[in-house]
Design a protein around this nucleic acid. Structure first.
Length: 110
DNA sequence: CTTTTGGCGCTTC
DNA sequence: GGAAGCGCCAAAA
């Protein structure tokens, strides 16, 4: 079962192009909701490749709580193949932090 | 830099 | 209907 709320979250998430990333809080701001609700929706993401939930991280540039440590390494690998590199603290490297995607179109939703 | 605190929208029980 | 728990966050200490 996919709720309308989930679809709206996925709709925003799909706007993130390769090589860019965003945060739960920023998406929550776009949808006028809370970060936890966004995390909850992305966790149950049934459209794995289409909706790039791996490009959504936490606001402090770390990964968030999604999988185990082993699986989170896989996320880092994915994002690295798109051009974003992480450091040993599982955080986005400083020089890539400007690549955060902010240009969301709200006309898609609402 | 770290930890605590309070609040948030949504899903699940 | 109510209550508890999340892939969180910002501010304060």
């Amino acid at each position: 079962m996919v709720s309308d709320f989930q679809n709206s979250v996925y709709s925003v998430c799909k706007q993130i192009p390769p090589g860019r990333f965003s945060t739960y809080g920023r998406i929550a701001q776009v949808l006028n909701t809370s970060p936890r609700a966004v995390g909850g929706a992305l966790k149950r993401n049934p459209y794995a490749p289409q909706v790039p939930c791996h490009r959504v991280i936490s606001s402090n540039f770390s990964l968030g709580g999604f999988y185990g440590e082993m699986e989170s390494a896989k996320k880092i690998e994915m994002l690295r193949s798109e051009g974003i590199e992480f450091d040993k603290e599982f955080r986005v490297e400083k020089k890539y932090r400007d690549l955060i995607f902010e240009e969301f179109k709200e006309s898609n939703n609402q």
